[in-house]
Nucleic acid binder design. Structure first.
Length: 988
RNA sequence: GCCCGGGUGGCGGAAUUGGUAGACGCGCUGGAUUCAAAAUCCAGUUCUUUCGAGAGUGCGGGUUCGAUUCCCGCCCCGGGUACCA
């Protein structure tokens, strides 16, 4: 034990992060160090994080990963003279708070505010440079006032296919009034043609219904994803494998009157826009797949003995002569008409079965091919041959026309259908193994195809479309998979949709009445009539109409435009002034998880384009560059519980004794013992000896009664990772953690350590593997947390959290501190001039860090800092000129310690006002370069040569080297390759 | 099935994009300091080796003076997506 005063001195000498961090946290808040001005001569840089939903569990170490990266970038940009917008806020409407409200009756606002306060506290500890004056919360009326306003903009807009832009609905109404809808080319529901006279003759209700077909926000009867358990509808991206994203409850298809947004109108622009933005390929690919563009053509097939036509969409018009049957979806509108009398019973039964299948069952049943013949025939448009028409549930009602021309030879699904029902398979492209499988490749020449014979597939496609178009059978066409987004939610905790109904006509709430605030309700459940919770609100009536819309907006409404509000967060006259949105413009860097690829990131782009088209903002892509941070996984700690029974070596009184000892202690085995036992390097006898050694009395007692342990198996038991450090368990902490470990016996390694096994899995409370950032900050300091999270690996890669190695970063911080202090802990910085070696070390670092930050390679620059500090330590460098620039360079990564040292270096202003040092190449130039010399690719020796030698001079110098003769071994070199500043290779 | 990523020591991961593979950190080994420990510092640490060297970046081939990097064919892991015609 150390004398008390001695340990005090030790503490004094070390960097006291607690004191320093709380000091600067306070200073930054009081001086508004990170407040950003909207007026500046400086170039702007907008660095944004995906704002969090404040859940009850608080932040875990995975959350700050992206925030730290963006903070480093923002601080770096600020040091480089940019006016940086780096805000934070909360996506505060959402299901968990409402579910909690249903259970407890506590208002979701209360829950949300509590969670939010904890989030703020956790974020503050990590030292982010957020401008908290710009904080936004999507659940606050002053914010959602403008979410409602944007909804109004969507309601009052339609998409003109000719201009490929949204336009004001007034313009469309004017057109209807002067010339009807015949010449209007809009993204809309199918609407019968009418003249100006017809339009004027229609009632208000009829006009309203027609306009709903055109509006970007519209009410319609549509098939929606209904989740009975959550009591609400969900958008397509909120349904994963037939289960709800939140809570994983079953989802079914249901026809409902619903608000939707016409995002499908923007399919092409959302696709094209991807070309102009700097996102990762994988993310762009996800959006491309989600939009799902496919080009081909529509073809109309006459139905035999009928005046109807069956229209299909195909991407393979080249295979038209291979059509051997047609399949329509069970929900297709012609099914009843097509069905012949003798097929009627079968068809009806099939349709009933298909209807009763849930989405999930249908998905699970993909391999099981089903279908029924309708009894009807279509006529081939070119050959006139009769083709049977079937129904089958592999054809989806919602895509294309809900009917396909089946080319069994060249489509695997059609092939499977044909095999199952013994339909003809007609190959029309040479090659492939038609006996075994469909020949889907788009290569080879056409055969058995009349005018297409001999053409290559690609030519045949063009020719077929041309022929189909000239014969009036169909048209070249593009289809998109992207569906309109269902916008209403039958829930309480969301923005009220600013609509009311007046004699059944939906009308927009007057702008002057925004925000339409969320009314209070007695319970957060649907009403007895099945209305959403808002139906419970008392005295909630519109001035002029009958009732308000009762559904609320989905979670993604508020997050679809929040990046705009940060630009002008307190503006009460508009969502954000044009002046501010023009200045801040696009988000220069957006960091967030990939899970929002088909939700938030698509909706935000959509809203941005609409606002742009309507003239409210000057750009039509919100996020110029986007980086996805990888998920941080948990590393669970395992202790191996020994499952044993008591065995007796003596039959006498066995029962009694067993009864007496049956509730023996729980035994846990340390990892290495367990490993050896599994590998049979540790015998059962040896294990028993080990157990005896650790449990002394217990095993002794057993033996005295002629009893022993019979080891059956091992169960890996998860223990709290926060009580395990570098795989070593703190046994006393675990014993206090949960009663079941209290009397347990831990069989340790030979060095008395108990080592845990590992299991990488998602961070979750139930695996006891959640690590909170505040725990790390409390023990190691915020700078260490920041540096360590960056050091963990590439930002974009998913990686398990592990505290292995955090000590290395902690050591680095201490070494860095010690550069400024002598052995006694006294300030020791000299004003002497820096040496050439010291300058070289510093400028190598500056160059590296600058390059790394610009390329988002934060992990490697932490390494560079470590190398630099080690080198300076070896040089015993304490020159202020070096240390000053080093502090600025490190400040984006470790703001607290650098702020403290910067201040101690005699600066009154925050380090954030400094200028990031420029590296000077002159310090890095070496007069000599060490050339590795290889013979036939094998490195043999190195040679120091001046940098300014010509190739010939280098060759001469190499050949004159004594070792060269040895490796040449009397041969003359065939070739000498010299890569300047890199390598010399001699081929013999 | 299809579309993206990825596979490098005991571990996390580097490699200026075709030029000395394994930076940096963890862990481990040895040493210094200490009455002792902690902390700190120094040295070593891909594997094999007869100490000359040889092999080596998932596997098999290819291009090249030279391949972790480029090409072809496989295997495995992660993510996305799915009867989308």
């Amino acid at each position: 034990m150390l004398p008390y005063f001695y340990s005090l001195i030790l503490v004094e000498m070390d960097y006291n992060f607690n004191e320093v961090e709380s000091k600067w946290r306070k200073y930054w808040a009081e001086n508004k160090t990170y407040a950003t001005s909207n007026i500046s001569d400086k170039p702007k840089c907008y660095v944004l994080d995906m704002f969090p939903y404040p859940s009850g569990a608080g932040l875990h170490v995975g959350h700050p990963l992206g925030y730290i990266a963006s903070d480093i970038y923002a601080r770096f940009k600020k040091l480089n003279g940019y006016n940086v917008l780096h805000p934070m806020g909360y996506d505060a409407f959402g299901l968990p708070a409402e579910q909690y409200a249903i259970q407890t009756g506590q208002h979701p606002k209360v829950t949300t505010d509590e969670n939010l306060a904890r989030y703020r506290d956790q974020l503050d500890q990590i030292g982010f440079s957020f401008d908290w004056d710009r904080e936004i919360r999507t659940c606050e009326p002053k914010y959602y006032k403008w979410t409602q306003w944007i909804f109004g903009q969507l309601f009052n807009a339609w998409f003109n296919n000719d201009s490929q832009k949204s336009e004001n609905i007034e313009k469309l109404i004017a057109t209807f009034e002067t010339e009807g809808n015949a010449n209007v080319n809009a993204a809309c529901e199918e609407t019968p043609v009418f003249t100006a006279e017809d339009w004027k003759g229609k009632t208000e209700k009829e006009q309203s219904d027609i306009l709903l077909n055109y509006r970007l926000a519209y009410l319609s009867d549509s098939m929606v994803n209904w989740c009975p358990k959550l009591g609400t509808v969900l958008a397509n991206d909120e349904v994963i494998n037939g289960l709800s994203e939140r809570g994983s409850y079953p989802v079914e298809r249901k026809l409902m009157l619903q608000w939707s947004l016409r995002i499908s109108a923007y399919s092409e622009r959302l696709l094209q826009g991807l070309e102009q933005i700097d996102w990762t390929d994988s993310l762009k690919e996800m959006q491309k797949n989600w939009i799902g563009k496919s080009t081909g053509c529509s073809v109309s097939f006459d139905i035999a003995n009928s005046d109807k036509h069956l229209e299909v969409f195909t991407t393979r018009p080249d295979t038209i002569f291979g059509v051997s049957f047609m399949v329509v979806a069970p929900e297709h509108e012609y099914v009843a008409e097509l069905t012949t009398a003798d097929q009627k019973a079968d068809i009806e039964q099939y349709i009933t079965e298909a209807k009763n299948k849930t989405e999930r069952e249908r998905m699970a049943d993909v391999k099981n091919v089903t279908g029924v013949f309708t009894g009807a025939y279509a006529k081939h448009p070119f050959t006139g041959k009769e083709i049977p028409i079937w129904i089958g549930d592999y054809v989806l009602a919602g895509y294309g026309t809900g009917a396909v021309m089946a080319v069994a030879a060249h489509d695997s699904r059609d092939y499977a259908f044909a095999k199952k029902f013994d339909l003809p398979i007609l190959p029309v492209i040479e090659g492939g193994n038609i006996e075994e499988e469909a020949h889907e490749a788009k290569t080879g020449k056409l055969i058995n195809s009349n005018f297409l014979d001999g053409l290559k597939v690609k030519q045949a496609m063009k020719t077929a479309i041309w022929k189909i178009e000239t014969e009036g059978l169909g048209k070249g066409k593009t289809n998109y998979r992207l569906r309109d987004a269902v916008f209403g939610r039958q829930r309480y905790w969301g923005e009220p949709i600013p609509m009311y109904f007046d004699k059944g006509i939906p009308k927009l709430v007057d702008e002057a009445e925004y925000p339409l605030t969320l009314p209070e309700v007695d319970e957060y459940l649907p009403t007895e009539d099945g209305d959403p919770p808002l139906g419970r609100a008392k005295d909630w009536k519109p001035k002029n109409g009958d009732n308000y819309e009762l559904s609320t907006m989905p979670g993604w409404a508020g997050s679809s435009w929040y990046y705009l509000r940060y630009m002008d967060p307190n503006n009460d006259g508009t969502f954000a002034s044009r002046e501010n949105t023009d200045y801040w413009n696009q988000v220069d860097l957006y960091i967030g998880g990939t899970e929002h690829a088909t939700g938030h990131l698509l909706y935000s782009r959509f809203w941005c384009k609409v606002l742009h088209d309507l003239g409210h903002i000057g750009f039509d892509e919100p996020f110029k560059k986007l980086i996805n941070q990888g998920m941080i996984l948990g590393t669970s700690a395992l202790a191996y519980r020994i499952e044993y029974a008591i065995k007796s070596t003596d039959a006498t009184n066995r029962k009694e004794f067993i009864k007496a000892v049956e509730n023996g202690p729980v035994l846990y085995l340390s990892y290495n013992h367990w490993l050896k036992y599994q590998a049979e390097e540790l015998s059962a006898t040896e294990l028993l000896e080990l157990i005896e050694k650790h449990s002394g009395d217990y095993v002794n007692g057993l033996r005295q009664n002629n009893l022993g342990l019979d080891i059956k198996s091992f169960s890996p038991i998860r223990v709290d990772v926060n009580k395990v450090h570098n795989n070593e368990m703190d046994i006393s902490a675990i014993k206090n953690w949960m009663p079941e470990f209290n009397s347990a016996i831990f069989i340790t390694e030979n060095d008395q350590k108990f080592i845990c096994g590992e299991e990488v899995e998602k961070m979750s409370k139930r695996w006891y593997n959640v690590v909170n950032p505040d725990d790390i900050v409390g023990v190691q300091g915020a700078d260490v947390l920041r540096l360590y999270e960056m050091f963990l690996g590439p930002l974009e890669q998913a990686k398990p959290w592990s505290t292995k190695g955090i000590d290395g970063v902690s050591r680095f911080i201490r070494k860095f501190w010690n550069l400024f202090h002598d052995a006694e802990g006294n300030w020791n910085v000299s004003d002497a001039e820096a040496s050439k070696d010291e300058l070289k070390v510093l400028h190598t670092l500056i160059k590296k860090v600058q390059h790394d930050i610009e390329n988002f390679s934060f992990n490697t620059s932490v390494s560079a800092f470590m190398v630099c500090v080690n080198d300076l330590q070896k040089l015993k460098c304490n020159k202020s000129a070096i240390l000053k620039e080093l502090a600025i360079t490190l400040s984006p990564y470790a703001p607290f310690i650098t702020e403290e040292l910067w201040n101690k270096l005699g600066n009154n202003e925050s380090v954030t006002t400094a200028t990031f040092p420029k590296f000077e190449a002159s310090y890095l130039i070496e007069s000599n370069h060490t050339y590795p010399v290889s013979f036939n690719g094998k490195m043999r020796f190195t040679l120091d040569l001046p940098l300014d030698l010509s190739k010939d001079q280098i060759e001469e110098a190499v050949m004159n080297h004594e070792d060269s003769q040895k490796w040449l071994d009397g041969n003359t070199p065939k070739k000498v390759i010299i890569v300047p500043k890199k390598i010399v290779n001699i081929v013999v």
